[in-house]
Simulated scan of single mutants.
Amino acid sequence: MKKLTFIALLLSCFLLTAKSSFAQDVTPDYKIAAGLKFGGYENGLSVKYFMNSTTALEGILGIRNHGAVVTGLYELHQQIFNAEGLRLYYGAGAHIGAVGRGEFKTFGDDKYYNSNRILIGADGVLGLEYKIPEAPIAISLDINPRLELATGPFFDLAPGLGLKYTF
């Protein structure tokens, strides 16, 4: 439990200092992106929509072993290191889904469910995204903390890789 508290505190401190350290208001490199998201627990489809130059909504339909999860995220994006197309993003959201009977790996603990279960909980995201100049491709790498409430409570921490086509 101390390890989880330390990780949450470290992420919070990073998010609070990142806004003042790297904040630059720039035009987004794209308005909409759709593609694939590969994660520690789910792989699936992702759609991101920029509401303005720094704020985006992302929806993910993730398929996992014996189930599926829909995740919605509110994200803040900031250009960093004065690098064209490179952005830091962070945000929060929620998920809902279902899993069937089976064994599921979680951060620090494995779970076995002998019946169907509903998944409902809170999500976070912290990552980097690079929009390739002169190409309609965006690549992201992030970390996704998740608090599962319906079958828990328990905490997951998973990496994510996104490949998206931009419009």
Rank of each mutant, 00 (worst) to 15 (best):
T71A: 05
G121P: 02
A92R: 04
P136E: 09
D25I: 09
G108E: 13
A150R: 00
V69P: 07
L15C: 12
Y49P: 00
L61G: 06
K131L: 09
L76Y: 13
F167Q: 00
N82V: 06
D110S: 08
I139C: 10
N144S: 07
P133E: 08
Y41F: 15
D142V: 04
Y49I: 01
A56H: 14
F6D: 13
L149R: 04
N114W: 13
Y90A: 11
N52A: 00
A122T: 11
D109C: 06
A135E: 07
H77K: 03
I120F: 10
G102W: 04
N43K: 15
R117N: 08
A98E: 01
P136D: 04
G162L: 07
L141V: 15
K131V: 03
G100M: 07
G72N: 03
G152C: 08
G124Y: 04
D123C: 03
L128S: 04
G102L: 03
R101P: 05
L119Y: 09
D123I: 00
A8N: 08
D110N: 11
K48M: 08
R146T: 09
V99L: 15
N43R: 13
V70P: 01
L11N: 11
G108T: 05
L11F: 14
R64V: 06
Y30C: 05
A34Q: 14
L126K: 06
E58D: 14
N43M: 14
I60G: 02
H77A: 01
L86D: 02
V99N: 04
G97L: 07
G72D: 02
E58G: 01
N116Y: 06
A150T: 00
R64S: 10
I139Y: 14
Y30M: 00
G121T: 00
G124M: 15
K2Q: 10
T151C: 09
A92H: 08
L9I: 05
Y49A: 03
F81R: 07
G102R: 03
N82Y: 10
L10C: 13
N144E: 08
G152W: 06
A33V: 00
L15S: 12
F38K: 03
H95Y: 13
G59D: 10
H95N: 12
A83V: 09
L141R: 03
G40D: 03
L119T: 01
L157D: 02
K105V: 05
P28K: 01
C13D: 15
L161K: 07
V125G: 06
I96T: 12
T166R: 15
A92T: 06
L157N: 02
K37I: 01
R101Y: 12
I132W: 11
A138S: 12
V47E: 10
A68M: 08
A83L: 11
D156R: 06
E134A: 05
L4F: 11
Y74D: 03
D110A: 14
Y30S: 04
E75L: 09
L149Y: 07
T106M: 09
A94K: 05
K131Y: 15
E42D: 13
D29L: 07
S53H: 07
K19R: 14
A23G: 09
T166A: 13
G40E: 14
M51A: 12
Y113N: 06
